[in-house]
Amino acid sequence: THFTSQQLQELEATFQRNHYPDMSTREEIAVWTNLTEARVRVWFKNRRAKWR
């Protein structure tokens, strides 16, 4: 999946605040970024792996 810079900005900003967002937070992010909750969940999983 290719993310727009706007989507990445929103995802990264949320990641800085919370590395493990809950389901409702992921659903909110999905609405803001026009992505599915599953895409958001996978992005956070991959981002945490990169962060370690």
Rank of each mutant, 00 (worst) to 15 (best):
T1D: 12
T1W: 13
T1G: 13
T1M: 13
T1L: 12
T1K: 13
T1F: 14
T1S: 10
H2M: 11
H2Q: 11
H2G: 13
H2C: 14
F3P: 05
F3R: 03
F3W: 07
T4S: 09
T4E: 04
T4V: 03
T4A: 04
T4M: 04
S5Q: 13
S5M: 12
S5E: 12
S5N: 10
S5L: 13
Q6T: 09
Q6P: 05
Q6W: 15
Q6R: 11
Q6S: 10
Q6V: 10
Q6M: 10
Q7C: 05
Q7G: 02
Q7L: 06
Q7M: 08
L8W: 11
L8Y: 07
L8G: 02
L8A: 06
L8F: 05
L8M: 07
L8Q: 08
L8T: 07
Q9R: 13
Q9E: 11
Q9W: 12
Q9H: 12
Q9Y: 12
Q9P: 02
E10V: 15
E10I: 15
E10S: 13
E10W: 15
E10Q: 15
L11C: 03
L11Y: 01
L11R: 00
L11K: 00
L11Q: 00
L11H: 01
E12D: 03
E12S: 02
E12I: 04
E12Y: 04
E12C: 06
A13I: 10
A13Q: 09
A13L: 10
A13D: 08
A13G: 06
A13N: 08
T14V: 15
T14Y: 15
T14G: 10
T14I: 15
T14D: 04
T14W: 15
T14R: 15
T14L: 15
F15A: 03
F15C: 04
F15D: 00
F15L: 01
F15H: 01
Q16N: 08
Q16Y: 08
Q16L: 11
Q16W: 11
Q16R: 11
Q16H: 11
Q16P: 03
R17G: 07
R17P: 01
R17S: 08
R17A: 09
R17C: 14
R17H: 09
R17T: 09
R17D: 07
N18V: 07
N18H: 06
N18T: 09
N18K: 04
N18Y: 06
N18L: 06
N18S: 05
H19K: 14
H19I: 05
H19N: 06
Y20P: 01
Y20A: 04
Y20S: 05
Y20T: 05
Y20W: 12
Y20M: 05
Y20K: 04
Y20I: 02
P21H: 02
P21T: 02
P21N: 01
P21A: 06
P21I: 03
P21R: 01
P21F: 03
P21L: 03
D22N: 10
D22Q: 05
D22W: 03
D22I: 05
M23K: 15
M23S: 07
M23V: 09
M23E: 08
S24K: 15
S24C: 11
S24T: 12
S24A: 14
S24G: 08
S24L: 12
S24P: 11
S24F: 10
T25G: 05
T25N: 05
T25R: 09
R26E: 02
R26M: 10
E27R: 14
E27C: 12
E27A: 12
E27W: 09
E27H: 13
E27K: 15
E28H: 09
E28G: 07
E28A: 14
E28N: 09
E28S: 10
E28F: 09
I29D: 01
I29H: 00
I29R: 00
I29V: 06
I29T: 02
I29Y: 03
I29Q: 01
A30L: 02
A30H: 02
A30F: 03
A30K: 02
A30S: 05
A30R: 01
A30P: 01
V31E: 13
V31A: 14
V31H: 13
V31Q: 13
V31L: 14
V31I: 13
V31Y: 13
V31W: 08
W32D: 09
W32A: 15
W32Q: 15
W32L: 15
W32I: 15
T33F: 14
T33N: 07
T33H: 07
T33V: 11
T33K: 01
T33E: 02
N34Q: 10
N34C: 08
N34M: 08
N34W: 04
N34K: 09
L35H: 04
L35E: 03
L35R: 02
L35Q: 07
L35N: 05
L35F: 03
L35D: 02
T36A: 05
T36K: 04
T36I: 05
T36G: 04
T36E: 06
T36V: 04
T36P: 07
T36R: 02
T36Q: 04
T36L: 04
T36N: 05
E37K: 04
E37Q: 06
E37V: 06
E37A: 06
E37C: 05
E37G: 03
E37T: 05
E37I: 06
A38V: 10
A38M: 13
A38K: 13
A38H: 12
A38L: 14
A38C: 09
A38Q: 11
R39V: 15
R39W: 11
R39P: 01
R39C: 13
R39M: 15
R39N: 10
R39I: 15
R39S: 13
V40H: 00
V40N: 01
V40M: 01
V40P: 00
V40K: 00
V40I: 09
V40Q: 00
R41Q: 07
R41W: 06
R41S: 08
R41V: 04
R41L: 07
R41E: 06
V42A: 14
V42N: 12
V42E: 15
V42W: 14
V42K: 14
V42P: 00
W43V: 00
W43I: 01
W43T: 00
W43A: 00
W43K: 01
W43C: 01
W43E: 01
W43R: 01
W43N: 00
W43L: 00
W43P: 00
F44E: 00
F44P: 00
F44H: 00
F44I: 01
F44D: 00
F44C: 02
K45A: 10
K45V: 11
K45W: 09
K45S: 08
K45T: 07
K45L: 08
K45Y: 10
K45F: 09
K45N: 07
K45H: 10
K45G: 05
N46P: 00
N46Y: 14
N46C: 14
N46K: 14
N46W: 15
N46L: 13
N46A: 12
N46I: 13
N46R: 14
N46Q: 13
R47L: 04
R47E: 03
R47M: 05
R48C: 01
R48L: 07
R48D: 01
R48M: 05
R48A: 04
R48Y: 04
R48T: 03
A49G: 06
A49K: 14
A49F: 08
A49H: 09
A49P: 02
A49D: 08
K50P: 03
K50T: 08
K50N: 07
K50C: 09
K50A: 13
W51V: 07
W51P: 05
W51T: 06
W51I: 07
W51D: 08
W51E: 12
W51Y: 09
R52L: 14
R52H: 11
R52G: 07
R52A: 09
